[in-house]
Design a protein around this nucleic acid. Sequence first.
RNA 1: GGGUGCAUAGCUCAGCGGUAGAGCACUCGCCUUACAAGCGAGGGGUCACUGGUUCGAACCCAGUUGCGCCCACCA
Length: 879
Amino acid sequence: MTTADQTDTQAPAGALAPQYVPGDVETRRYQGWVDAGYFTADASSPAPSYTIMIPPPNVTGSLHIGHALDHTLIDALIRRRRMQGYNTLWLPGTDHAGIATQNVVERELAKDGLSRHDLGREAFVERVWRWKAEYGGKILGQMRRLGDSVDWSRERFTMDEGLSRAVQTIFKRLFDDGLIYRAQRIINWCPRCMTALSDIEVDHFDDDGELVSIRYGDGDGSVVVATTRVETMLGDTAVAVHPDDPRYASLVGKTVELPLTGRHIPIVADPHVDPEFGSGAVKVTPAHDPDDFEIGRRHDLPSLTVMDERGVITAPGPFEGLDRFEARPAVLTALRAEGRVIAEKRPYVHAVGHCGRCGTTVEPRLSLQWFVKVGPLAKAAGDAVRDGRVRIYPAQLAARYFDWVDDMHDWCISRQLWWGHRIPVWYSPSGEVRCVGPDEEVPNDEQGWVQDADVLDTWFSSALWPFSTLGWPDDTADLRTFYPTSVLVTGYDILFFWVARMMLFGLYAMAGVGPDESVPFRKVSLHGLVRDAHGKKMSKSRGNTVDPLDWISRFGADATRFTLARGASPGGDVALSEEWVIGARNFCNKLWNAVRFALINGAESGGVPDVGSLSVPDRWILSRLGAVISQADALFEEFEFAKVSDLLYHFAWDEVCDWYLELAKVALNGEDQAAALATRRVLGHVLDQLLRLIHPLMPFVTEELWTALTGGESVMIANWPSGLESADAVAEAEIESLMRLVTAVRRFRADQGLRPTQSVPAILSGIELTPLAIHERSIRSLLRLTGAGDSFRPNASVEAEGITVELDTSSGIDVAAERRRLEKDLATAVADAEISERKLANPAFVDKAPAAVVAKSRDRLAAAKADIARLEERIATLS
RNA sequence: GGGUGCAUAGCUCAGCGGUAGAGCACUCGCCUUACAAGCGAGGGGUCACUGGUUCGAACCCAGUUGCGCCCACCA
């Protein structure tokens, strides 16, 4: 019979179906929560607040597995705190994502053969807004599928009016404080995106280049320089050597002819040059290399720009108009023709910067840009972590944070884009510069004032997210209630991009409210990247990606969430495969059926009877429940999602389902009505509490089950369990003993090929002398042992826990199998005894090891010896 | 180039000073009225290598090898 067949015929009226089907339960439940207002925070609540800001996904984005991981963890934290009575706020929203969004809309335009320049700035920006209205925020809808308990009434977008005001306010404040400045600098330039990039938007990876040595000048006055970017020699304005290099001492101060150009350039001495590298002489191109720019500054050299913003050569001559990668071989050929090329080394593997957005090779470019002077801000950001006002989990990642924050370059914040926060600075024809705050009047363009054309790095507004979303710069109730936020949950990959910058700006903007209150968040919980089953990075080209929406529709949101949580150790990457999620889906079903069992058996969740009237199995499971609650709490506090998931999984499955439910059956079906009632109540209580514990991780099934079990309104507003004083060592020891006995007999039965379903007559000799005496009925039930009738002829026995279980296996026993088993057990016992014996024979061990360890060894030895004696006797009597 | 992390069962990982653990996979037996998306039993690891510290090392230290990650303006 198939499962489907059973569905209709077996389920008692009013009970749950035998399988959990997520499907419509999830959408129905989610809408129910929203309608009930459970997600909405209350700025006037007297309860302590607990706030998490969503790491705002790009408006262009859709929910991928990385978001699913992040959101699962955040939602778990939020839901637990909500159940604990906190005034919780999980604030959702999206990021305007400057380059990314502009690229998307530009691609759309390109389909019609248009560029943004065809539209003009205003129309283009308008177009992006229209795109946003139509397609943006798709991800927000998808978050509902995951079950994210976000406060939809507080949704924000980084380009919202309020957030834009925050951007302008802090820009003005930083400008006035001298922490924002404009300067000619060598910056990372993407010739495709045609904009400046900050250092961290550049990825370095090895490229095959070639290192070419070229002779400048002739005869005694010549020097040899090496370069990987030959074409930049067109912009050389000097050759530099080390001041103490004897080889060049006589040349310093003289000039040398620059090939192909007819220009003569000076030879300067600069300590930055490494005399060990190559020839010890360096070509200096101040306009196209950051190092050279510094050398140029020190020696007052001219900066000669020979390439435009598209990477096309602008130096007059035969190379003008060539792309930089065409110019490179062309220049080389010309140099070779003049006999200037001394040596070539190819391939020459070296790290080259690439645009983090489009992968194009970055060109260092001299240009006028806006910068944040990070020095004092970064100092404060480092100190806040150093003195513990902000704690990073796992702590080891704090080192990486310090490395960056303590040695941070000034942040280039201007971007030559159209989509973003416009830099609030105006220039007058007379050269006057005016930074304008949000409430100030914009300078009159009739007088020739023009606004700076650039927009701000998208991370500039993200850096304000923890407080701009709450109404800053206004003194709002939200800001007072929810700032500082409680914890920031995100991947370690954006520690620098985002986390560090929120620290910079949060501490600066909120400085007035006191050192402990100005931090943007009190804790940072960093998780890793999602990888495939073999730890490989997920990528579309590898074809190993997991679409969370696909998993949600096939296995349910709960299974998807649980799989992610179960893999998430602090700072650790998460390996995923479909096998894992199937296991999680099965777990949902396991819980489903446990509650189904409880309902069929009339479980009551109104509370637990007095301990004195409880059976040992009831006391045992309550004791274990209390311990699990305490452990789960401790693990949640440390962001140990993998461990807490594992703990709850094993408690639910191994202890509650595999043992407690089986033991409960005995009481539930027994004659003793009082005992049955007590067990019904304990059963109901344990499942009630268990569902509460699991709810943060798997909100939907637990809601469905908890409401069915308890008749309550919603588990998400039920109280979080507290580790009640239920520790019961006696009950735990007794049940553990029972488990060992049952397992030993099952093992025997399996070895003997006795069907698990077959009842076997048996007597339990000696049980009356053990604590298990009161459990005989349970033991017989678990093992399907029947009473010994008149025809009882024991032909086999199993010894464990001081009890001899004598069985009458009608078919007789398999002596060979039994002997094999006994000999194997004997071998383990002997080995066990040997190890303990050897240790105890060592006086140093007995002397130095802790008493408890020595005692344990003695116990083990005694037990092993007893086993050996017993097993030898059994083997002897076998034949 | 500078940091930093990891090498434990077929796979993904936990354990971090006292006789090796989980999930999945695997083998055997079971449709036992909560669940076959299940139940029971079982097999499988000289904890990368070499030294050292210790009564005792998967765990601490040093070195070696192999991976990974982060940072980086060496022409």
